[in-house]
């Protein structure tokens, strides 16, 4: 009896997912081709290194976000996430001789990225993971492989009154709980913070007039503005610098060097730009120059 009702629930959930999937397909059109990733054959690594271990095992576990369109997003009904972070993950795995289908994608949320790395639940984290000094004390972070900046999304009718972060004083500003974006506008510009769990909840409150601005990395906002171009507008220049890095076990310098070499190679042979165009570039942003990598400590 219990099994049967569980089956029914699953079927209902499946129907809901299928409906959602149809919506997403309708919204995006079906023309996104995934860039092909080069998979190294029998790469050679020093014995005992993290690279040799992963390469021999033939699989890698990568922690990613699954709720950020364009960056790391698991569309309803899909079993593989997509986005820029995912493409970067494929490039790293490829350099280790691991094919994209042998990568295990594990969802990490902002709160558990450090513990996951420390306890070895994942091998690396590529999850819109801004490099900060506090984080570098507990985990390794290398990169950046992408530099973005915080911007503001407002309703169309407010685009002349709120033109940048300077006008945010005492303005109700929404962002996601525990994100650096929110503390930036609160500490530097005196905005009144309104935290929600997800960006889409923030969007609802912006559209119903409960908050007057929403802030986070520009790439995410552009995606939302593109969905409702008559109602929403991204205003102002980027006013912070978020440097997305790749997280690894603290102190594994050898592995860090390897990641940097792989990223540098991807910059040089154009696969980085290709990954960008296929994901974040779809919202109409121009492909930037690849950012300069930090040296491994």
């Amino acid at each position: 009896m219990a099994t049967r009702s569980a089956g029914r629930t699953r079927r209902a959930a499946f129907a809901a997912v299928a409906a959602g999937c149809a919506l997403v397909l309708a919204a995006c059109g079906g023309d996104d081709e995934e860039p092909s990733v080069e998979v190294e054959e029998n790469p050679d690594f020093p014995a005992g290194s993290t690279m040799a271990e992963l390469s021999e095992a033939g699989s890698i576990e990568i922690g990613v976000k699954i709720d950020q369109p364009g960056i790391g997003y698991l569309a309803p009904g899909e079993d593989m996430p997509s986005g820029f972070d995912i493409e970067i993950g494929k490039i790293i795995a490829g350099a280790l001789g691991i094919a994209p289908e042998d990568v295990t994608w594990t969802e990490t949320v902002s709160d558990n990225r450090e513990p996951f790395l420390q306890q070895g639940n994942v091998d690396i984290v590529i999850a819109s993971y801004s490099i900060t000094d506090e984080r570098r004390q507990v985990v390794g972070q290398t990169g950046p492989y992408y530099v973005t900046g915080q911007q503001i999304l407002v309703r169309e009718e407010d685009k002349d009154t709120i033109t940048g972060p300077e006008q945010l004083a005492d303005v109700k500003t929404c962002s996601v709980t525990g994100s650096t974006s929110l503390s930036n506008v609160v500490d530097d510009y005196g905005a009144e913070p309104v935290p929600f769990d997800t960006y889409s909840d923030c969007l609802t409150q912006l559209q119903n007039g409960s908050v007057d601005a929403m802030t986070t990395d520009g790439a995410i906002l552009l995606g939302y503005a593109a969905q409702a171009p008559d109602e929403l507008e991204v205003v102002g220049e980027a006013f912070s610098e978020e440097r997305y890095g790749i997280g690894y076990q603290h102190g594994d310098t050898e592995f860090c060097e390897f990641i940097n070499d792989t990223l540098q190679e991807a910059y040089d042979d154009g696969s980085w730009a290709e990954a960008f165009e296929a994901t974040l570039g779809e919202s109409g942003v121009e492909t930037p120059d690849p950012p300069e990598l930090d040296a491994c400590q």
């Binding site: 507990v138 525990g178 650096t180 309104v194």
Partner: peptide, 24 residues
């Protein structure tokens, strides 16, 4: 309420985790 726009204790916890991951 911390997931619905309120800056209560639980919201501050998420914020602290984000800013000071070394002092979990």
């Amino acid at each position: 309420a911390s997931a619905f726009g309120i800056l209560d204790l639980t919201y501050q916890l998420s914020d602290l985790i984000e800013d000071f991951p070394g002092s979990l």
